[in-house]
Measured scan of single mutants.
Amino acid sequence: MDALKSAGRALIRSPSLAKQSWGGGGRHRKLPENWTDTRETLLEGMLFSLKYLGMTLVEQPKGEELSAAAIKRIVATAKASGKKLQKVTLKVSPRGIILTDNLTNQLIENVSIYRISYCTADKMHDKVFAYIAQSQHNQSLECHAFLCTKRKMAQAVTLTVAQAFKVAFEFWQVSKEEKEKRDKASQEGGDVLGARQDCTPPLKSLVATGNLLDLEETAKAPLSTVSANTTNMDEVPRPQALSGSSVVWELDDGLDEAFSRLAQSRTNPQVLDTGLTAQDMHYAQCLSPVDWDKPDSSGTEQDDLFSF
């Protein structure tokens, strides 16, 4: 819950932080000083300027060897085509990944977070970031790969997607708890209302004896509580940590079903599988986004697919 609360507080303090972009060759504004600060901008989305290598189908939802083989196929196909790589912007948030063309600003792909089953910074092609997700059109699994400016960037994108998945799962947990509370309150309110109706004398007997209905007592009954809980029953509950912020979080049926399955089948359902080692994760978390744009010590960066 700490990640969720800190993310909400950060967004309320400075929503404009989320509009910064990394990996864009110096076009961005001043960047936060450390990885923790940038992680807090996830709610509205972190932007990464990358190059799209392509996509291939895979048979399993996750796995280092599986993704490595898929990336190898994608890279080989991209090299064989001889075409310049498409420059894209990857927007990562707890909602998922939005992929747009840098030149036309046209939407290429919009992947809900619950469809993503794996992401990684490839070991062999260490400047490549990739994720595996279920197609929104059918049940097939797709591996999408992107060329980053350097290994640090690939690791940073991988960690960002993993963190977005974690925050999304926490949102789901909060929403589920809130819905259970509202359902319980609604049920209790309905029981109270039913009890009051059972003990209320029939209207005919009131008229016969000349008694008047006590409207004041009726007004004191917990009807307002019942209506408050039943009027918006169809509205999706939102985490309290975000009250007053500009973010509107809505959970669709697909996300609810997917996270429910994860909660039942996995020990740590909030953790998205990645190909990063503990050492890689520690190294990337210690980086400032400013470091992502620094040239690798191995030599001059080449803006070309064939540089790796």
Results as ranks from 00 to 15, higher is better:
D2M: 04
L4I: 10
S6P: 12
S6Y: 14
A10K: 15
A10Q: 15
A10N: 04
A10S: 14
I12H: 10
R13E: 15
R13Y: 14
S14P: 12
P15K: 07
P15Y: 06
S16F: 01
S16K: 05
L17T: 12
S21T: 07
G23M: 12
R29V: 07
R29L: 11
R29W: 13
K30L: 11
K30F: 10
N34T: 13
W35A: 09
T36N: 10
D37C: 11
T38W: 15
E40P: 14
E40I: 02
S49M: 13
G54R: 00
M55W: 07
L57K: 06
P61Y: 11
K62S: 06
K62E: 02
G63Y: 06
L66R: 06
A69H: 12
A70D: 02
A70V: 02
R73Y: 08
I74D: 01
I74E: 01
S81H: 11
G82M: 01
K84D: 01
L85W: 00
L85I: 07
L85V: 03
Q86V: 09
Q86H: 07
T89K: 08
T89N: 06
V92P: 01
S93N: 11
R95W: 06
G96L: 01
I97K: 00
I98S: 01
D101N: 10
L103T: 08
L103W: 11
L103D: 07
Q106V: 14
Q106W: 14
I108T: 14
N110Y: 03
V111D: 01
V111N: 08
S112F: 01
I113S: 03
R115Q: 13
S117F: 06
Y118C: 02
K123M: 13
K123Q: 08
K123W: 11
H125W: 00
D126C: 00
V128M: 01
V128D: 01
F129V: 15
A130K: 00
Y131A: 01
Y131E: 00
S135L: 02
Q136P: 13
Q136F: 14
Q136A: 15
H137T: 10
S140V: 15
L141K: 13
L141E: 03
C143N: 01
H144K: 15
H144Q: 10
A145K: 00
F146C: 10
C148R: 00
K150V: 11
K150R: 12
R151T: 01
K152L: 10
M153W: 13
A154S: 06
A154E: 00
A156Y: 12
V157N: 00
V161P: 00
A162F: 04
A164H: 12
A164W: 09
K166N: 06
V167K: 13
A168H: 03
F169I: 03
E170Y: 05
F171L: 10
W172C: 02
Q173H: 06
V174F: 03
E178R: 12
K179V: 07
E180I: 04
K181L: 12
K181W: 11
K181T: 14
R182I: 15
R182E: 09
D183C: 14
A185E: 14
A185G: 14
E188C: 03
G189F: 03
D191H: 12
V192R: 02
L193E: 13
Q197E: 12
D198G: 07
C199F: 07
C199A: 09
L203K: 06
K204P: 11
S205H: 14
T209S: 09
G210P: 12
L212H: 14
L212P: 10
D214K: 14
D214T: 11
E216Y: 07
E216F: 05
E217K: 08
T218H: 04
A219M: 02
A219S: 05
A219C: 09
A219E: 04
K220H: 09
L223V: 15
A228D: 07
T230G: 04
T231N: 06
D234R: 03
E235I: 04
V236F: 11
V236I: 12
R238E: 04
Q240Y: 12
L242F: 10
S245M: 07
V247G: 13
V247C: 14
W249M: 13
D252K: 08
G254S: 12
L255Q: 07
F259K: 06
S260P: 02
S260L: 10
S265N: 11
S265I: 06
T267P: 01
Q270D: 12
V271T: 07
G275K: 02
G275S: 05
G275H: 05
L276F: 11
A278R: 09
Q279R: 15
Q279Y: 09
M281T: 08
H282A: 10
Y283D: 05
C286G: 13
L287T: 06
V290P: 04
D291W: 11
D293Q: 10
D293K: 05
S298D: 09
G299N: 05
G299A: 05
F306T: 01
